[in-house]
Simulated assay, not measured.
Amino acid sequence: MPKEDQAEEIEVLQSIYPDELTLIDETKYRIHLALDPPQILGQPEEDPKALLLHVSYPEAYPDVAPDLDITFDEDSTSTALLSLPEDKPALLAALTETIEENLGMAMVFTITSMLKESAENLMHERATKKDQEREATLRQEEEKEMEKFRGELVTKERFIEWRKKFMEEREAAKKKAVEDEEAEGKRGQKKNPTAEEKKLTGKELWERGLAGNVDDDEEEEGIDIAKLKLEK
């Protein structure tokens, strides 16, 4: 009876998967399962993937579980979303409950549907995680940029400290301004002597050869240049 059940199931599967099922012998075959990979934001689009479900009937099937194996087809390779053989144990484990619930009945179609769903769910979960990680990274970068434009939080203690420093700097600036002004005044006095400092004695005028160049103001003041004599 199991042989007849097995042959009947293969016939049904061939009608469901006319192009996807490859019969190896009367108890072995493989089914090609095309997967729909999700798109990860900011990443190149994933190439279409396909799994091969390898099925082998034990003599007592369907009263016992079929022997199963999972591989990629020849055009598919491992990526961040799905990797074989690394993900094979998890994919096979996801079929355990389905197999146990269907013992005694033809179950390969149900197993095939569950495998496709599990593989695509796994890829979607990883894609979602990648998107979340990318968004978290972008938020961190935005926070770093925003920190550049945020001022330091003002507290009473910080204000008092700032005011003290400000007053000290202002007093220092005032003191320096006064010192600079005084220094400038002294330099101006040296460059511009007073009228008294400019006035020379008759002897100084004679010695410097200025006797003939005295202006009218000095004559009005009663200085008679002609009467000046050298002091001995």
Results as ranks from 00 to 15, higher is better:
M1G: 08
E4L: 13
E4Q: 15
E4M: 11
E4V: 11
Q6C: 01
Q6Y: 03
Q6L: 01
E11T: 13
Q14F: 01
Q14G: 09
I16W: 09
E20N: 07
L21K: 08
L21M: 15
L23V: 15
Y29P: 00
I31E: 02
I31H: 01
A34V: 14
Q39V: 14
Q39F: 07
L41R: 15
L41E: 15
P44I: 04
E45V: 11
K49A: 04
L52P: 03
H54N: 14
V55A: 03
S56V: 06
A60T: 06
Y61V: 02
P62R: 01
D63W: 10
D63Q: 11
V64R: 03
L68M: 03
I70L: 07
F72I: 10
E74C: 08
S76E: 03
T77D: 13
S78W: 06
S83D: 10
P85C: 06
E86N: 06
D87Y: 07
K88L: 01
K88S: 09
A90I: 12
A94F: 00
I99P: 00
E100R: 08
G104L: 00
V108A: 06
T110F: 04
T110V: 08
M114I: 05
M114P: 00
L115E: 00
K116L: 09
A119H: 02
E120L: 03
E120I: 06
L122H: 06
L122A: 12
H124N: 14
R126C: 04
T128R: 11
Q132D: 12
E135V: 05
Q140P: 00
E141F: 02
E143P: 05
E143V: 06
E145G: 03
E145N: 05
K148D: 08
K148L: 15
K148A: 07
F149A: 14
R150D: 05
E152R: 10
L153S: 09
V154N: 02
T155D: 07
K156M: 05
K156R: 12
E157S: 10
R158E: 07
F159I: 00
F159R: 12
F159C: 04
E161R: 10
E161M: 10
E168A: 15
E171R: 15
K174W: 11
K175Y: 07
A177K: 14
E179M: 10
E179H: 12
E181G: 11
K190F: 02
K190G: 06
T194I: 06
E196R: 10
E197L: 08
K198E: 12
T201I: 05
G202W: 03
K203I: 07
K203V: 12
W206R: 10
E207N: 14
N213H: 13
D216E: 15
E219W: 12
E220Y: 12
E221N: 13
I225V: 15
K227I: 02
L228S: 05
K229L: 10
K229N: 12
L230C: 00
E231A: 11
K232H: 09
